[in-house]
């Protein structure tokens, strides 16, 4: 992977190579022992026979994956067709999470940039201002967001008072409400990583570009954004991935009319269905999808670092 020319500037980045194993070991131990082992169990479960009303029977079975892919009708005895239900649910969750991530980025990037360009002494205050609301429980926050945007709520009253709209906006129980809820659930997870990157940005680079008569927005696009990209990517991962499995915003703001990945999987473990192997299989499919994207990203990162 490492390019041949990767010498001078990059060689310093392995200053801690001799002890890297020690540095990463605690992570390996904690996650390896307390998560990989349990998740491995789940992987095994996804290939077992379901026990009625929760639990598994130790017999190999592909029924869980079969159910994900093939539609055999209401009574399970029709010739198999391609099952679209779960693909639809996955696609819906991905779209909602993507829009929420975009909203977070649109609002979060300027905020992070603004905070990072404040005087050093006030930056910490701004950071805390972004995280203070998160001391209030997610459920309470989501319920109050719902209160704000309901048909006869403050937002509609205000907009009608200003004359912007004549009829109240129907926001709750729509897709937009879900996106808004996800956005509100995870906003700081976008702002903080971007802040950490922009704070390190050397504005001499912008000045140099300005001296070459580059416009402000060109500088932003061509100089600043590429430099702070790691922060933006970290933020997007931290918003997008948890949004995929979120259940509170879809339930409370979206009206729970349609399953999302999170509620579908939860139904298998906590609902009437009690189909653990299917819940495990759906999780493994989700896990491998995200894993492939992340590994692709990690590989590109290390290729770039090496070249």
């Amino acid at each position: 992977m490492a390019g041949i020319g990767g010498k001078s500037g990059e060689s310093a980045s392995s200053a801690f190579a001799p002890i890297r194993a020690w540095l990463i070991a605690p992570t390996w131990l904690m996650i390896g022992f307390f998560l990989v082992v349990p998740v491995g169990t789940m992987l095994v479960y996804s290939f077992l026979t379901k026990e009625f009303r929760g639990g598994v029977i130790w017999e190999f079975s592909l029924a869980a994956y079969d159910r994900f892919i093939f539609d055999r009708g209401l009574f399970g005895d029709e010739p198999p067709k391609l099952e679209l239900t779960y693909i639809t649910i996955f696609a819906r969750s991905i779209v909602q999470a993507a829009i929420a991530t975009a909203l977070c980025l649109i609002i979060g990037f300027p905020t992070a940039f603004y905070i990072a360009t404040r005087p050093v002494s006030t930056r910490a205050i701004w950071l805390f201002l972004v995280t203070v609301p998160y001391w209030v429980n997610l459920l309470v926050r989501t319920v109050s967001m719902k209160f704000l945007v309901r048909e006869s709520g403050p937002l509609n009253t205000f907009l009608q008072w200003t004359g912007v709209i004549s009829e109240p906006l129907q926001i709750i129980n729509t897709d937009f409400a879900v996106q808004l809820g996800l956005f509100y659930s995870y906003l700081p997870f976008m702002v903080l990583p971007i802040y950490a990157s922009v704070e390190r940005y050397d504005f001499a680079l912008s000045e140099a570009a300005a001296d070459l008569y580059a416009g402000k927005w060109t500088i932003l696009r061509k100089v600043l954004l590429p430099t702070v990209k790691p922060g933006i990517i970290a933020g997007c991962i931290l918003v997008f991935v948890p949004s995929l499995g979120a259940f509170l915003a879809p339930d409370l703001l979206g009206g729970a009319k349609n399953f999302m990945i999170g509620s579908l999987i939860e139904e298998q473990f906590k609902g009437n269905a009690g189909n653990w192997p299917f819940g495990a299989a759906a999780s493994m499919i989700l896990l491998s999808m995200v894993l492939i994207v992340l590994l692709f990203y990690a590989r590109r990162q290390s290729v770039r670092a090496g070249a």
Partner: peptide, 17 residues
Amino acid sequence: DEETQSVYDAIWTRLKK
């Protein structure tokens, strides 16, 4: 029983898909 319950599950999933 398991057979009827699995039809109910299918109906519920179709309702919320």
